[in-house]
Design a protein around this nucleic acid. Sequence first.
RNA 1: UCCUCAGUAGCUCAGUUGGUUAGAGCGGCGGACUGUUAAUCCGUAGGUCGAAGGUUCGAGUCCUUCCUGAGGAGCCA
Length: 461
Amino acid sequence: MQREKVKQVLASESGREVLVKGWVRTRRGNKNISFIALNDGSTIDNIQVVADNGSFDAEMMKGVTTGSAIGVRGSLVESQGKGQSVEIIAGEIILYGTADPEKYPLQKKGHSMEFLRDIAHLRFRTNTFGAVMRIRHAMAYAVHHYFNTKGYYHLHTPIITGSDAEGAGEMFSVTTLDLANMPKGKDGKVDFSSDFFGKHTKLTVSGQLEGELGALALGEIYTFGPTFRAENSNTPRHLAEFWMIEPEMAFYDINDNMDLAEDFTRYLIRYALDNCSADLAFLNEMVDKDLLERLRFVADNDFIRTTYTAAVEILEKSDRKWEFPVGWGRDLQAEHERYLVEEHFKRPVILTDYPRDIKAFYMKQNDDGKTVRGMDVLFPRIGEIIGGSQREEVMEKLEERMEEMGIPAEEMWWYLDTRRFGTAPHSGFGLGFERLILFVTGMSNIRDVIPFPRTPRNAEF
RNA sequence: UCCUCAGUAGCUCAGUUGGUUAGAGCGGCGGACUGUUAAUCCGUAGGUCGAAGGUUCGAGUCCUUCCUGAGGAGCCA
């Protein structure tokens, strides 16, 4: 007999034999009858299995407890009780694996997110993490679908890089040298010439620079891969290992870039609303009562687009007391961004044209000599979800900026070659995948939207 | 990394100005109930009070250091 997924069984007509396999969420009942809520991960909903205890081996039935894995063959019938439309009257129960109730850490009752983080290997078996992981999958699929439909190519940029100049944060070193006995050069520094790659290599902090190389030949590309930042960040919005989506497009200026960023994020949110309704309904009920309303609002309304300079004026005119000073040339603090998004505009905001001195070397300089064509997309609750820019395509200006900021041009010869040979206007951005999932699920800590979070002092599992 | 708060049973927490034998709910276990929905009811076991020092006749409670976690800030996606 063919096994069916709970999702299909729940959606199907009663009056037939079915076979399901999954994990027991709860078991209720008395001496004579058992009600088993069975979940197989295909949907947040459980199927109720009704078992006449007398018809089954008593020793086997003792093993059917919360967390155990079972298979059930039986007839699908209209439920006599309330709370579900159909249920399975068990004809045969196969006990695959028991879960000692005295030791199994998951209970019928809710657990704190902190506790579940300590048992991240088992937390997939909770309603919340099942929902989050199904949504995470749907969002990853939607990313690829979106770009494929638009003619973008998925480019696999390297995880291991020899470049020192990505400039997006502290990096993890990658080496096969003996850590207890590192070879030293005459200057006392580590000599990497005998290392695996013959040079000092690190884990990537961004695929952007390589992405630009692809875009300036293939037209439109995107990356979607892991990214590593060795920053000692302890916040609900940062991970040391996270996934980032970085589209890069030839012949796109900053306005085209903004159009894409907005269309892309609103598409993803609409996709979740259209395809993850059961999981979102659960999260809306149990995690964040405003979730669905917020998602619909963002999907249905245009983002505000304004400049850094205009934003500073808004902040200066407000009668709010700022913990950090506001002024042209200063970077916006979290409190400033939150005010703009959550109180002043009350919707997502795209800020552009930042002072050049607070942004990266590769951003295109404006004619005013003061600002660059960078853009940040700011979302309610989570702040910066996207950072991007039009890239500087003029060789002389790029070299000048690198010189000013101490970026070694000789190590970046391959990057500069794209400006040397057939340079063209181009743009791109980075979307933090986990921050997107945070927004879409209504979860409050980024460690709870990735299966196995890597944060300072934590690489368990 | 900085600031604030927290760490007591498997989980979530209470524990008074320092005072006898450290409590509750849930979960587990045993029992009752022929249709339950986080079932209900009765009973029961379960503790190195984060760690190490210190103050005191006496420390879960006060002090010091450290560890761990959370929230805020910075870095950013």
